[in-house]
Design a protein around this nucleic acid. Structure first.
Lengths: 258, 258
DNA sequence: TGGCAGTGTGAGATTTTTTTCACGGCGGGG
DNA sequence: CCCCGCCGTGAAAAAAATCTCACACTGCCA
């Protein structure tokens, strides 16, 4: 519930009841999705599972798509929170690099909520497309921001600017550096490209697992993922120079400090 | 059409017509998917676009799911063919590493056929799940096999066995090496893990792009992808020792073999 | 040449979906 | 205190989906 903060506004009782009801509807929808699967998501089903009639829901959501949009947004937010929580200090073994912790938080949430992950990163709903520039887009960026922090916190802008990356074309450099600062705009172009690359690897393995394309690995998914992420950290550190004080980078050359 | 090979069997004319009709149905379905989107895929729609009635289709496919399975299988096969073709010698600039060529073939097919890619790697169809161990599974493995060849052809088993990877648990090693040889069973465990990692990165970037999560990159998707893949090749080569010629790790600088 | 299998149509049963409209009760704010 | 608005139900419109059953034509195989 990241949406309740410092709001001691004199909420009318009416509004409180409305908020509660809305919350119940969303919870029912999420429960329905996790239990019966994405294919059975419909206003009717949600209403049934609440013991209400379909028409009542229209007092809370103007259309089915609005409900879906709310669900998608919440899923993004929960994913972002999960990753953030996983990277918080003391959350885990401090010997684990931040990026690995973040990646495992990402994967953990995905395998714990496969349907909702598919809701976000698949396209499982007929005739639904997220409103352009809507809340889902913003929530999406929030996830990216969390990953960005997990990847780059602890590095100086100078280090990032000197990342060892192939030469990028100047149009691309310009485009990347002109983006909104709350997405990737505050990064030097090579660092932005590096982030995309890392996110790609992270996301790719999770997607393959959640969508069942690596089932032949059996019970060892977690271990495979972890080794891949350790390698990723190594590779990233090899590309970011150690000007001045290198903290975590000892891990880079060594790979040793298991 | 990878399914027609050395089959001068005395096909009955009846059977020929049947084959043609089946082919037409599949083509119509694919056209429909690419033009109207995945949400509108249904037997009725396919029938309409062929000027036939729904019931006739049941003479060719016993159910909607059977048709979908055929579509999925064909999509896998086409993807595999596209990757294979991209890696064939002379297909492209020989200075481009094989893995990069394969990756770009993979991406190319995905962005050229986004709906069919989503059909494979998303879950866009209500109440459809592929038959376990069915043709889709085999077609899936074919894709993996092509990528495996693109990654590892040119390396000796000794090199692969000596890949610089974190220590894998012995259960995992055992599991990986006991897999069927036509998937990953013929690889040393570290190489198998490396393949999964590389496939993950490759797939992840493509998925993010095709599903619209990196639209902020605009027209530069291809360039971002290409640099990421070049880095991937570098990283892979850094992990596979160059027994004999000592070029390997110098490649850190030597991404230069452009 | 005779019959049957293959191929198509017509009609329909059944289910499900989203969404709108009209109406009733209850409670809270002016 | 009273009225307006919120919240819920009942009924129904409109559309679309899969799949079955009975029937007709046609051309191929024996």
């Amino acid at each position: 519930m990241p949406t309740e903060k410092a709001a001691p506004l004199p909420l009318s009782l009416r509004e409180r009841r409305r908020a509660v009801a809305t919350r119940e509807i969303l919870d029912a929808a999420e429960k329905l999705v996790t239990e019966r699967g994405l294919g059975d998501l419909s206003l009717r089903a949600v209403a049934r599972s609440l013991g209400m009639t379909v028409q009542a829901l229209y007092h809370y959501f103007p259309s089915r798509d609005a409900l879906v949009t709310a669900l998608v947004t919440e899923a993004y937010d929960e994913l972002a929170d999960a990753v953030r929580a996983a990277t918080e200090p003391g959350a885990d073994d401090p010997a684990v690099p931040r990026l690995v912790a973040a990646a495992e938080g990402y994967r953990r949430w995905a395998v714990d909520h496969p349907e909702r992950f598919q809701l976000i990163y698949g396209t499982p709903l007929r005739h639904y497309s997220a409103p352009a520039g809507g809340p889902t887009t913003r929530a999406m960026r929030r996830v990216a921001a969390v990953i960005k922090r997990a990847l780059f916190d602890g590095f100086t802008p100078a280090q990032l600017a000197a990342a060892d990356m192939p030469v990028l074309s100047s149009p691309l450099r310009a485009h990347l550096e002109q983006l909104s600062p709350d997405s990737l705009g505050d990064l030097p172009a090579p660092a932005a490209a590096l982030l995309l690359s890392a996110w790609g690897q992270l996301h790719g393995l999770v997607v393959l697992e959640v969508f069942g394309h690596t089932s032949f690995i059996g019970d060892h998914q977690a271990e495979v993922f972890r080794t891949a992420m350790r390698n990723l950290v190594q590779d990233v550190h090899r590309r970011i120079p150690d000007v001045g004080a290198g903290v975590g980078v000892a891990a880079g050359g060594g790979g040793g400090e298991v």
